[in-house]
């Protein structure tokens, strides 16, 4: 039985200033799956996430959302990038959480969560606020709703950022090293929110250095290196019996 993947990338290539960052990546995530992506810095894992979130154009290759190509189209053998307006509409389907939270500092927590609802979905202020409050409750921050980002801890900011992406009801959530910018004692609360999110059946791709999280929560673990996927396996297999020498080496460093 093969399920239709929610998000799929085919033969993805990306070059920055002559440096090949992605060299033919094949990747997919099925509905309800949680995929953890590991790999050394500069291996291209964050770049893949940005391309999937349509924040940067791929040089070549395809990104498919529920079987439909997004971000670009083929025209007479050339890859054409869609205009920004169409990209904006497609991005609503993909939730993105950034390493450095990127909350809007001029808006309170609840306003951060509301902005997508009011300015993208056109939902009325009152309704947007109640939806945003519900979402803040889910990440345990309803009592911080009127605080500005500067008044929140890093962990709280990242939880607001998760709520901000979730409230738009995306088909898949992308996490770009969501705990890497946090003080160690704040990592736990963010991972807890993500674990609960996974339990609700949300499809998630998590680029992370948290090996324990990958092992406990992910259905599948992927190792990225040199712009390609080196190994992809279930957590148990990946961590106890990796097939590739490169994976063994990587794991010996992170543990």
């Amino acid at each position: 039985m093969t399920k239709l993947p929610i998000l799929q990338v085919k033969d993805l290539h990306k070059t920055y200033n002559g440096n090949a960052v992605l060299t033919g990546v094949e990747f997919e995530v099925e509905k309800g799956q949680v995929k953890a992506v590991l790999g050394p810095s500069g291996s291209g894992k964050s770049t893949m996430l940005r391309l999937m979130a349509l924040l940067e154009p791929a040089d070549s290759g395809e990104i498919l959302l529920k079987g439909t190509r997004i971000g670009s189209r083929e025209h007479k053998g050339h890859t054409l990038h869609l205009p920004e307006r169409q990209l904006a509409a497609q991005r609503q389907e993909v939730g993105m959480v950034f390493q450095r939270f990127n909350l809007f500092p001029h808006l309170t927590a609840v306003r951060n969560v509301m902005l997508g609802l009011t300015s993208v979905k056109g939902i009325a202020h009152h309704e947007a606020r109640s939806q945003a409050m519900d979402m803040l409750k889910k990440v345990g921050l309803e009592n911080r709703a009127t605080h500005f980002p500067s008044e929140l801890s890093g962990g709280q900011q990242q939880r607001v950022a998760i709520a901000r992406a979730l409230v738009l009801n995306p088909s898949v959530m992308l996490f770009d090293e969501p705990t890497s910018a946090l003080d160690p004692e704040l990592v736990g609360e963010v991972l807890e929110v993500m674990e609960r999110l996974a339990e609700t059946g949300m499809t998630m791709i998590v680029v992370t250095h948290e090996v324990r999280f990958a092992r406990r929560v992910a259905n599948e673990v992927t190792l990225f290196d040199g712009g390609v996927i080196v190994e992809q396996a279930e957590p148990e297999q990946f961590f106890t019996n990796p097939q590739h020498e490169r994976t063994r080496k990587f794991l010996s460093h992170v543990r």
Partner: peptide, 15 residues
């Protein structure tokens, strides 16, 4: 990162 976050939410460049 601010523009990036806004675009990730699906906001148009003008928004």
């Amino acid at each position: 990162g601010q523009g990036l976050a806004g675009r990730a939410l699906g906001m148009s460049p003008a928004k």
